[in-house]
Amino acid sequence: MTLQFAISPDFPPEHIPGWYIFNTWLQRELDCAIHLQLYDNFGDLREAIHADRLDLVYANPFDASLLVREKHFMPLARADNLQDEAVVLTADHHRARHIEDLRPGTVIAATDVPDIEMMGMIMIEPADLNRNNTQRITCDNYVMVAKQLLNDEADIGFFLAEAFDNLSDLVKNQLRPLVRSQIQVIHHSLMAGPALQERHATLQQLLTTMDTSEKGQGVLDALKIHRWSPLAQEDSEFMIDLMDTLMIS
């Protein structure tokens, strides 16, 4: 049987080769065939989850609830150097200097990444802004979000903090962060489905000791991950509870 492995669509494109290298490593270590599936959008990924087509998922925190609570996936590990934090930005020449300077009718440029969207909307609540009194431009990627701000098509943009930090200085210097989240407990997770239940402990051990071998470390380097930290069921349940509270507005 070939296992089906999916990566959350919000992975940085430059990591695509890294995920293929990781998949090759995993197949050798587990001695089984694994098909790596990259989805273009969250809708397609969720359709695959709902249809029980996946066995291993590197999941956005937003999908963790569906995987753990409805599809009985078990958390394996998280990348210990990666957290999902968001930044709300304006163009440097925009009149807003603080979130509270924003007014109803504010135009938001954002990607379809669900946890960044959620954190962004929470961070503009102090200006009494919500989905009903703001306008939206959905962009394919963060470069397009920045472009909307610089061209004055949008007032603010929601960015993954890491994506903002990785912009060129030329672009970054033309943008102004209004607020940056410091939540620290929201992160992507690698999760195993029911078909891998018997191999869960083996898989978790393999992942969390990857950094101790030269080969494993090379694979991690390709993904820009320092090491995988083990995730217990309750770690994921805690994050899901937190996400549940944040979805209430």
Binding site: E125, L242, T245
Partner: peptide
């Protein structure tokens, strides 16, 4: 602005999680 949810494990409420965020001045 506080949000409190019951934490359900195996069909039972076992604890409560509370998350507070910044409220608007208004």
């Amino acid at each position: 602005l506080a949000t409190v949810i019951p934490n359900v494990r195996e069909g039972r409420v076992v604890s409560y999680t509370s998350v507070r965020r910044k409220p608007s001045r208004g």
